[in-house]
Design a protein around this nucleic acid. Structure first.
Lengths: 333, 333
DNA sequence: TTGTAAGCGTTATCAG
DNA sequence: CTGATAACGCTTACAA
């Protein structure tokens, strides 16, 4: 591969002149510049970005770590980030945090980007705290880690869940179950607290038998449905901590001959694309994904500009009422 | 940020010793190593990946360029790539090729990764040819560019479309329309050729009025439906060049009061997740996404190992029959 | 076993 | 306006 040296040699000038010419610095004679450009073209010269990054100690790219790098769920998020970063002449590279010890942590440890936006509970908080510095700020999505150069943008999971369950109560359901994600996921925990608060406010209590365990996957929801069916005891409604589980749950229940929503209402969380396609269409909580992304990018640039100790930003969610949680029909049971 | 120099100073050794110790090279006295490790820990030292990459002229990461970085469509593809690269201790970073002059081209020009897998028609062929070198091979997905260090993995779009339309004919439909993507997309072109071949074989001809123009988006399909409705002339069946358009089309038609599939059959292409959720469920062509990814990764590593002039690999597709293209009911029109 | 020094490909400072 | 030269942070012969 041709380097700046080769170009200099071919053009018969020094490498510094080549650098000046190629970077459109003033003070280069037009004639010289032309000579350099010609040489570069002839050699198919491409500057080595890595060397450049090392010299300048900046990459003009920001990293994005997602749990999975797939799913329409992230589409808007990425767009929100990209719209903002592109305007600042920055690139975005995405990597996923799948696997036991995600390889993506290499990227957060070794400063291969100028900063990071992380949406993943997998990555260790200590690691994040260690990696974050003035010249390598980190913005967390739906998660908090205290450090000067880390900030977060979140949705109010508790409030969102509270409102969702409130709707279920208002529609006339009693026996409302909670289908949760992994115990240690903070999203899950906060959604559970919201569920709990809503029940308490209505003078009810959380019953262990109505606390179902899932794992944020469709399969998890499906499994929960099967267990419910096997036990033969059904609640009147279920609030699932995410749409994927809600969908698996609905499919499992329907296969078991349970009519949704007549025999059981379901509410989800996230408003993924499928939510409006599954039958019945899913009542769910919409996260402002685009805004989540753009806010994160905005905060990251402020951090990059030297600000620190930024407060976390909390975004509002929006309850989307569809067909899976209609007013409860009065039946003569 | 602490550098290797700082660690050396604190540990009271030379920087080369630090490097040796940190990289678990033999020939370092245990005691010295301990001293170095302690110093590194105290300084919260993180090696600078960029400097390392520059020195070693390799990054152990491969880049992936996708049209959009979103959509469940790519989920399996990415997994296919990742499973393979992870086994080789490589990382994957993804970037999207959206926008007029995608910023991601910077990554392909400046050798910031050891190679690239590109799924995008947006990126200029000349650029690809210029960038590809023995130490920066490129694998193209569903696209071909002739160069020693570029190869492709593709599906046989023509054959897949041919088979899909053959099914439609077999089910008894005559008047079969084609809803295409952008004219210049080679996928689209080849799918059209397959459509054409299938019709010809059945002794029919392609009629201009049944060649609908879309753009691979749901909105495009929706628009086509509206135009069809406005004209008042409907074909018996439509083969859409991708699922998104097919779905938009179905929604548009249904809104116009047309029963699918009774009044019009539809077949799509891709088998995205939604295809099995939309009503009616969509008959479509499944691309072997995982295999597409893993094959691409495999080829890339062979290229990286010094092989060249690799033949393109063509993968088989699979027709998924669902409800949107049943045998045509005999009606007394 | 450890240190010295060269070099990866740039950019930037400073003379000339 | 152009050319030496140092430096970015690291790895690795080679020397000690």
């Amino acid at each position: 591969m041709a380097t700046i040296k080769d170009v200099a040699k071919l053009a018969g000038v020094s490498i510094s002149t080549v650098s000046l010419a190629l970077n459109n610095q003033p003070h280069v004679r037009a004639e010289t510049k032309e000579k350099v450009l010609a040489a570069a073209r002839r050699l198919n010269y491409q500057p080595n970005g890595i060397a450049r990054d090392l010299k300048l100690s900046k990459t003009e790219t920001i990293g994005l770590i997602l749990p999975d790098l797939a799913g329409p769920f992230y589409s808007e998020l990425i767009r929100g980030i990209q719209d903002f970063t592109t305007a600042n002449h920055y690139d975005v590279v995405a990597m996923s945090a799948i696997g036991e010890r995600p390889k993506s942590i290499r990227y957060i440890q070794e400063k291969r980007t100028d900063g990071m936006i992380i949406m993943s509970q997998q990555i260790d908080a200590t690691l994040i705290r260690q990696a974050a510095r003035p010249d390598f700020p980190i913005v967390l999505l739906n998660r908090e880690v205290s450090s000067n150069h880390v900030t977060s943008v979140m949705i109010d999971n508790r409030k969102a869940a509270y409102e969702a369950v409130q709707l279920m109560i208002r529609q006339g359901y009693s026996e409302i179950a909670y289908l949760g994600g992994p115990e240690d996921a903070s999203d899950n925990r906060n959604r559970f607290y919201g569920y709990q608060a809503s029940l308490h406010e209505a003078g009810r209590t959380v019953e262990p038998k109505w606390c179902l365990q899932g794992d944020f996957t469709k399969e998890g929801g499906y499994g929960a449905a099967k267990r419910l069916l096997a036990e033969g005891m059904l609640p009147q409604a279920i609030f699932a901590a995410n749409d994927e589980m809600a969908i698996g749950l609905i499919e499992g229940l329907q296969q078991g001959g349970i009519g949704i929503p007549e025999e059981m209402a379901v509410v989800g969380f996230d408003d993924i694309q499928l939510a409006s396609y599954i039958r019945p269409t899913l009542t769910t909580v919409r996260q402002p994904m685009y805004q989540l992304g753009s806010t994160a990018a905005k905060l990251l640039f402020r951090l990059l500009d030297g600000e620190s100790n930024l407060d976390a930003v909390v975004l509002d969610t929006h309850l989307i009422e569809r067909d899976s949680c209609p007013p409860k029909a009065v039946t003569q049971s």
